[in-house]
Amino acid sequence: MTDVMLFLKEFARTRRDTGAIAPSSPLLARALTRYVIPSPGRPRAVLEVGPGTGAVTRYIQPALGPLDTLELIEPNPRFTDLLRHTYRDDSRIGLLPGLVQDHELGSYDTIVCGLPFANFEAPVVEEILGQLLASLNPGGTLSFFAYAGVPPLRRALTSGETRERTLGTQAVLERTLRRHRFRTETVLWNVPPAHVHHLALVAPAPAPALAYSA
């Protein structure tokens, strides 16, 4: 079975967890790995969350130096088996099955995330993004994508509790982007088109000085 066929089969079986309707296109993969940048003389730690069939991993592996490491966290056992077989001969790549929330993460220079945040409830999104941002080394980056046009479409097509959940999730994403985003790329040649958001740790703004009157 090809990677694409496996992906489509898993999408049909576990649509909510798989999220994407097709593996990431080469252009989307390049945008997501924009900041997997070689750093001669210093080992780098890279994390990919939700690699699926490895469409983005294939762009990370060639950018790794001999002392660099790449951890993959994948909850789908079928994708995990595929990844384990594909990268079994590369000692730089480690595989952690299960949910990212269930793992104690290390510190990373670059994090690439392919999780379908739009499908998750707000507390889960907030927990995962907080966990990933807290795992960044100083100067590190977190990159993830969202399908273009999906937020207004979801708001228009949902109602009741489903709409409230959608609005809650979008509020968490927007709040996180306002504080941490430093760049967004739009990838039109993807199914569907997507926005790639690049985030970095930002120190909280200093509290304003209080004025006291006599």
Rank of each mutant, 00 (worst) to 15 (best):
P116N: 09
N190C: 10
I111N: 02
R154V: 14
T80A: 14
I73D: 08
V112L: 09
Y147E: 11
N76Q: 15
L142M: 02
P123F: 03
T110R: 05
L105A: 04
A156T: 04
L67T: 13
E185A: 11
V187D: 03
P77V: 09
Q101E: 15
H195R: 14
P151F: 05
R165V: 00
Y108Q: 02
L95A: 01
L167Y: 00
G106N: 14
D90W: 11
H198C: 08
S107Q: 15
P152T: 01
G106Y: 10
V187L: 02
P66L: 08
G140N: 07
A156V: 09
I60A: 05
Y108F: 05
T169W: 03
A63H: 08
L157Q: 12
E161L: 10
A171H: 08
T86C: 07
Y147P: 03
I128F: 00
E126C: 00
V100D: 01
L115Y: 10
V191K: 09
T80K: 04
E121Y: 04
L99M: 14
G139V: 10
A194L: 11
E161T: 09
P193E: 13
L157P: 00
G106R: 15
A63F: 03
T158E: 04
D81E: 15
P97N: 05
V172P: 01
R183W: 12
L72R: 15
Q131N: 10
V112F: 04
L173Q: 00
Q101L: 14
F144Q: 06
L177K: 14
V125G: 06
L64Y: 05
P116S: 11
G168H: 01
E185P: 03
F79K: 07
Y108H: 00
N76V: 13
T158W: 03
T110M: 01
